[in-house]
């Protein structure tokens, strides 16, 4: 088999498995929501009947909200729900009547993805770079200090960091806004004032997120680098007189490899939002949306949010696996997927 055909087969296999996983999660969450004690779907249907709707009207109204019929066998309802899922229809929100769940999720995602993505990437870059130095200077003061900073920040909960930063930079020394995603004075769009305000408001959440996840990266990278430093090929490269920069690249590339899986997964997780950060900084993101949907028993929204998180993680997994075929030659020629 040619290399191209092998890669095509690999991608196809990953996609098929991804679709199956998403289907399983959608099915499980359908039945969980359907089987919750007190059956919210049935409850809604009955309350609409009590409000004086005709059975047909109540049925239609419930169907619009949940994306499936409250009547008929469980199987019929399941088929109906899957059908509308295939059309990208997640039903309508209960707490904000008349608004499509997909619309709510889309709006929240735009507030979540950029700050969390920026925070993830920043903490990754920072943690990985510092991890290399912590490993190389591990017997010196600088190494001790870096490793200590990692353990410390890894141990402090994200909301403590968030509250601390707000207290310092928004209250004690008010140079940054304490919350909200953007000033309402600006017209949304691609104008410098609006974008500037967006960035200004994003500083604290991004820094909080970066500090909160930096510790994990630096500790993981440090231990990887120490392991690779003990590998024979690094000493061999030095004995061949390779330039320091080249030896460093050998070291860093080999050490960073295992971290890409974790990075891809954290990027996938960002569709779950970051509940604490969004709560502290009053960001209307996905995390807040999920929490609100749970507290207001908005089952359609809940199901939709879970589904988005699932899709995010499944896609991130596939991307991570495919990424390895590019960056790790041992996986590439592994042949059978």
């Amino acid at each position: 088999m040619t290399r191209g055909a092998a890669i095509t087969r690999r991608v196809a296999g990953h996609l098929a498995r991804g679709v199956v996983m998403i289907w399983v999660v959608a099915t499980v969450s359908f039945f969980i929501i359907r089987e919750i004690p007190g059956d919210p779907v049935q409850g809604m249907y009955e309350s609409l009947l009590q409000k004086g709707m005709s059975p047909q009207q109540a049925e239609r109204a419930t169907a619009v909200l949940y994306g499936f019929l409250p009547k008929g066998t469980l199987w019929d309802q399941y088929v109906g729900y899957m059908g509308s899922l295939l059309h990208g229809d997640l039903g309508q929100s209960l707490s904000t009547p008349g608004v499509q769940v997909t619309h709510l999720i889309g709006a929240a995602a735009s507030w979540t993805v950029l700050p969390v993505l920026a925070g993830t990437l920043l903490s990754f870059l920072l943690g990985v770079t510092m991890g290399v130095y912590a490993a190389i200077r591990r017997s010196g003061k600088l190494g001790d200090l870096l490793a200590l900073s990692g353990s410390l920040l890894h141990g402090i909960p994200v909301y403590v960091i968030g509250l601390l930063l707000t207290a310092i930079f928004a209250t004690l020394w008010p140079i940054l806004p304490s919350g909200g995603p953007v000033d309402v004075d600006y017209v949304p769009g691609l104008n410098p004032g609006y974008i500037g305000s967006l960035l200004y408001h994003a500083v604290l959440p991004v820094v909080t997120y970066t500090l909160a996840s930096y510790g994990g990266w630096i500790l993981a990278m440090k231990s990887n680098v120490v392991a690779v430093l003990g590998d024979d090929f690094i000493l061999a490269a030095e004995l061949r007189g390779l330039k320091r920069g080249i030896v460093f690249r050998y070291l860093a590339r080999n050490a960073i490899l295992p971290l890409f899986t974790i990075l891809a997964l954290s990027i996938g997780m960002l569709f779950g939002g970051s509940i604490f950060i969004e709560e502290i900084f009053n960001y209307p993101g996905l995390g807040l949306l999920l929490v609100n949907s749970i507290s207001s028993r908005d089952y359609a929204l809940m199901g939709g949010t879970f589904l988005i998180i699932t899709v995010g993680i499944v896609v991130a997994n596939i991307v991570a696996d495919l990424l390895y075929t590019v960056i790790d030659p041992r996986v590439r020629s592994g042949g059978t997927a």
Binding site: F233, A236, E238, R240, G241, R253, I327
Partner: peptide, 24 residues
């Protein structure tokens, strides 16, 4: 560094592991 490799060649103990696994 310049003497290593250029003036003195060294074949490593366990030369099986003396190559970077990620590069040709």
């Amino acid at each position: 560094r310049q003497a290593r490799g250029r003036k003195v060649g060294y074949v490593f103990q366990a030369a099986q592991n003396s190559l970077n696994p990620l590069k040709t």
